[in-house]
Nucleic acid binder design. Structure first.
Lengths: 256, 256
DNA sequence: TTGGCAATGCGTTACTATGACACAATGGTA
DNA sequence: TACCATTGTGTCATAGTAACGCATTGCCAA
């Protein structure tokens, strides 16, 4: 089946497979070069950037849909995701972004479920940057990591969704441990501190940070220091899986 | 139009007016006789209790739908509501509860959008018990306040939804002021304390509670004490609207 | 009329958490 | 080999919290 045929099929018959009016958008965060990144897609024709999203199959749990979408774009599996907000303004799914498709695929706007109104549920995921192999979807030319502070114009209300996700992530930081998926297996204290500073977008005191993160008990110090660095070599740490998972569920008081 | 005709119409043609597959359920909390109450409906035929819910009109914001539903059941307007979670298990909307309708209204299950799968968004509202005049909807026999600790068997997954709403409310308590809609205009310190104790389901120290709630600045002490009570008369307080609203947006640190 | 009493208002103390900062240890580099 | 940026550990003042004491109030019973 040719590319355009597949796309046309999706526009004309997708509603036989998916629920109408509901979509899922994923905000996939990663950490690299001391910067917080988001995985975005560049839309064909319009050229604007958008969040990786998709639809819910007729007999599929919404959480599963989110995980499926994550896997399709990143190859990753078994990642902790959570919904954070529903975006439901009736004017949010403007037809504008779809105009180019109309011409290309040769459809009228009243022929396809894709031009109906959509309410979307936002999901966040924190993933290991190095393990992701970005794959674009049929609506997009590329799938790339973008620096959270250098996001160009985005589709529809995706910018609002992203902002809300960031707020949510910053709040989460006080209650849930963060880092297991964002950091490599072994990491140093300055590295995890930089992660927290990047997410919260503010400087933290080195010594107070160490005291607090240690006191949560989710870290184990390895008997190994980082090699080949100038100045004093920092210890390597890794997460204590048992306590990390416990803290994920029970929560940790952790105000920064 | 007769009652059954209207109902039949809703089942057969409701999808022309509302979005398919999406519903909204409201968890409406009130406070009375030192007890936390929830407004529930008793379903016809099945007899089970359910949350006040409804659907989203094709060009309506979901928040507006929730407010409309609240108003229809309580008569109240301008109430602060917020979404807290989306319930999306494919098996959640069982057809079982609708079986009785089938017989009564004379429909086959494949004839109506109402028998399709629904994903529902939960909204919470805190309202003034004394100002509510419960009105049942077309699917229900009565609409009543039920004590949060004495809830009988509920429809579908409504029990799970209610539990999640309670958890959410308890968390909210630490960040947002609560009480403006739940308490009468004038109230005493023991009364607002009892409210907090009821929601959190635990005893709080009288003196520490007073110190903290005062320190938030959201209360104004009136120059008036409660009359006709045995023992020492407590002062009346009311909320400082300006600071209350500010705390609603900005949040207050308030761990109990 | 008056003293008891239960509830409220106000205060104290010990402890813990937090923010700000000092100083010693380390190990590559000039 | 001395330097020095960076890390590891510790200190201190302060704020916030939990636990509890005591005086005050005002109805009620004797």
């Amino acid at each position: 089946m040719s590319y355009d045929k597949a796309l046309r099929d999706h526009y004309l018959k997708g509603h036989e497979k998916y629920l109408r009016h509901i979509s899922v958008d994923c905000i996939i965060f990663g950490f690299h070069d001391n910067e917080l990144k988001v995985l975005l897609l560049q839309a064909k024709y319009a050229g604007l950037w958008g969040l990786p999203g998709g639809f819910i199959k007729k007999e599929e749990h919404m959480d599963e849909a989110a995980k499926r979408i994550l896997k399709e774009r990143t190859g990753l599996d078994e990642i902790y995701m959570q919904q954070f907000y529903v975006f439901s303004a009736p004017e949010r799914s403007t037809r504008k972004a779809n105009q180019q498709f109309l011409k290309t695929v040769g459809l009228k706007s009243n022929e396809s479920w894709m031009f109906e109104r959509f309410i979307t549920v936002g999901y966040t995921a924190l993933v290991d940057f190095s393990k992701v192999e970005p794959v674009a979807d049929v609506f997009s030319t590329t799938c790339e990591w973008l620096n959270i502070h250098e996001i160009p114009e985005m589709l529809l209300d995706h910018r609002d969704i992203l902002n809300k996700a960031l707020e949510d992530l910053q709040l989460q930081l006080n209650y849930h441990p963060v880092g297991y998926n964002l950091l490599p297996e072994k990491f140093t204290m300055p590295e995890i501190q930089k992660l927290y500073e990047t997410i919260l977008d503010k400087k933290l005191d080195r010594r107070n940070f160490q005291r607090k993160i240690i006191s949560t008990g989710i870290l184990k110090r390895l008997n190994e220091t980082k090699k080949g660095v100038a100045h004093k070599a920092p210890w390597y740490y890794k997460f204590d899986q048992r306590k990390y998972q416990k803290a994920l569920k029970g929560g940790i008081g952790f105000e920064l």
